[in-house]
């Protein structure tokens, strides 16, 4: 890609970022920070690209660590954001109903809650 094209994209993306975050309620500051944090996990693609050319041991190690780091950033980031936001969704509560529903067997549903103390 032409350098000037890249700079054009960069500047436009910067404005999109500025515009897209307007009037965020304080409550959503943390989840939003966490979500954008997960999005910069896109850096992991860079790891995929550089490891393609890696020959020496050091290059391979660097690339593998970069991929692992990037994946932690992506997977952890999106999951933790989802958990935070899950707290805000209004639960259609009645517990008896939830148990009688056949779909109530959500995987690992119970581990979602901190154990307290």
């Amino acid at each position: 890609m032409d350098l000037m094209t890249e700079i054009t994209i960069f500047v436009l993306a910067a404005f999109v970022g500025f515009e897209v975050i307007s009037k965020v309620p304080t409550t959503l500051h943390t989840p939003l920070m966490s979500q954008t944090n997960a999005i910069h996990g896109i850096i992991m693609l860079g790891g995929l690209i550089v490891i393609g050319t890696a020959d020496g041991t050091l290059d391979k190690v660097i690339g593998t660590i970069a991929i692992a780091f990037g994946t932690i950033n992506i997977v952890g980031g999106f999951m933790v954001t989802d958990r935070m936001l899950g707290m805000f969704t209004r639960k259609p509560k009645p517990k008896a109903d939830a148990e009688s529903k056949p779909s109530g067997s959500s995987p690992a549903g119970g581990s979602d809650r901190p154990d307290g103390g």
């Binding site: 993306a13 970022g17 500025f18 897209v20 500051h29 939003l32 954008t36 999005i39 910069h40």
Partner: peptide, 10 residues
């Protein structure tokens, strides 16, 4: 860039 600019606003 999206994260950079939106993160700055945040």
């Amino acid at each position: 860039t999206l994260v950079g600019s939106s993160g700055t606003i945040l």
